[in-house]
């Protein structure tokens, strides 16, 4: 059964996607500009997004807000493993080349760029191969 709540998630994703698109955070050019420290747009997005999220979470804790279902908010702690290191280094290479992290890939496709389907399919292949090799990789 499809939950009504899922449409709320769709709505939030849509807003997120519009913001990425309109701020050009999905642009390969803009990303190259950031990687070369020649522009502020992407850094600015990052540097306002993180504190906004942190303030929101602070308020949730301070006001002891609950979820729509009335459950207490819980944030799972991440346990460090070496996969964070190896994985991030590999992801960075892919990001530097395609200028796209997973979010922008979807947004690019939605904006009508059929070539980004190649990036998506390749990313799915990468995810699948990692899943297959996981037991044999160092973590």
């Amino acid at each position: 059964m499809m939950k009504k709540r899922n449409f709320l998630f769709l709505l939030i994703g849509t807003l997120f996607g519009i913001a990425l698109m309109k701020s050009e955070a999905v642009s390969w050019f803009r990303m190259q500009e950031m990687f070369r420290f020649q522009g502020f747009q992407i850094f600015g997005i990052f540097m306002t997004a993180v504190p906004s999220a942190a303030i929101g979470i602070f308020l949730i804790k301070k006001l002891k807000l609950k979820t729509l279902d009335g459950e207490p908010i819980k944030i799972e702690k991440k346990e460090f493993n070496w996969g964070y290191v190896y994985g991030s280094l590999l992801f960075g290479i892919g990001w530097g080349l395609t200028g796209a992290c997973p979010g922008p890939i979807y947004v690019q496709i939605g904006s009508g760029l059929s070539i980004s389907i190649v990036i998506l399919v390749s990313a799915l292949a990468g995810t699948w191969v990692y899943s297959y090799l996981k037991p044999r990789l160092p973590h």
């Binding site: 994985g87 892919g94 796209a100 399919v121």
Partner: peptide
Amino acid sequence: VAGGGFLVGFGTRYSG
């Protein structure tokens, strides 16, 4: 395009 995309998928899952 494809190699980069592959690493985006492989790397992000590896690093969680």
